[in-house]
């Protein structure tokens, strides 16, 4: 079997579903509108900033905030994209077909995850195309843009893995989407209380996704942050695989 047979199948299903197209169109239109507003604001303040050579540039004022908006949208979009990947198969009764084709649970999960990841990275690439379209007209801080892009890619990959895991556990896609949204929001804001109490370190802050994404959006790449995202992805996919394997046992 081709290692990407499940990916190909899932990718095809994603592309023919109106939901993926509608979400992509709406979010990209929203991001383009905001990009235009931020660009206008950047251009109108260009003269004042000319007096501060070390002041914030195009990437700080337009590129990273645009990616920040994409991150906010991702909390809603990713659960909607991932909700049907396994829960939908379960509802259609097509999951046993994959088992009966001799595809192991791990490969089903990985195949579906790669398809979702492909969609999410395409979404990120289309968003990035907006600031990149101006690369020849203004100064670009490539390092900061690369770090922020890496952060967003890791965040999308993590939310995608959580979404796939929720879809593996839920019997209905809507339950999967709700669970993925709640888990993602909880992961983002788990340290809010601690921060309000003035605690800026410690385990509770380490647990929060925001603690690992914000440094990357500021251009600081650290191995700890990358490992945090990687751990979460592996954990979510392992749980999804376990659940699918149990499904085959229980049917």
């Amino acid at each position: 079997m081709s290692p990407f047979a499940v990916t190909r199948l899932e990718w095809r299903r994603l592309l023919v579903r109106p939901l993926a197209w509608v979400l992509a169109a709406l979010t990209l239109a929203w991001l383009a509108w905001n990009f235009t507003l931020m660009l206008g604001s950047f251009l109108s303040s260009q003269i004042q900033r000319a007096a501060q050579p070390d002041g914030p540039g195009f990437i700080d004022l337009v590129g990273v905030p645009l990616l920040g908006q994409l991150a906010q949208l991702a909390f809603l979009v990713v659960p909607l994209i991932t909700m049907s990947v396994i829960a939908g198969e379960r509802r259609n009764g097509t999951l046993p077909l994959l088992f009966a084709a001799g595809v192991p649970a791990s490969r089903i999960v990985l195949g579906k995850y790669l398809a979702v990841l492909g969609w999410l990275l395409l979404w990120l690439a289309l968003t990035l195309a907006m600031p990149l379209a101006l690369m020849h007209t203004t100064h670009f801080d490539w390092g900061k843009l690369a770090a922020a892009t890496l952060g967003l890619a890791l965040m999308l990959a993590t939310l995608g893995a959580i979404g796939v895991a929720c879809s593996a556990f839920a019997s209905h896609p809507a339950i999967a989407a709700s669970a993925a949204l709640v888990i993602a929001l909880a992961l983002w804001s788990v340290n809010l209380g601690a921060q309000m109490a003035g605690m800026n370190g410690g385990a509770i802050n380490w647990l929060a996704m925001s603690s690992h994404l914000q440094p990357l959006l500021r251009g600081l790449v650290s191995t700890t942050d990358i490992v945090w995202f990687a751990l979460l992805i592996v954990l979510a996919l392992a749980l999804a695989t376990r659940r699918l394997a149990a499904d085959k046992e229980r049917n």
Binding site: M1, S2, R8, R13, V16, N92, G93, T94, L97, A101
Partner: peptide, 20 residues
């Protein structure tokens, strides 16, 4: 059990890929 969003031809392709 079928994938409602795929055509008949796409079903056969998907099953073919799964079967190598």
């Amino acid at each position: 059990p079928l994938w409602p969003e795929l055509t008949v031809s796409e079903h056969l392709d998907a099953h073919g890929h799964l079967r190598g």
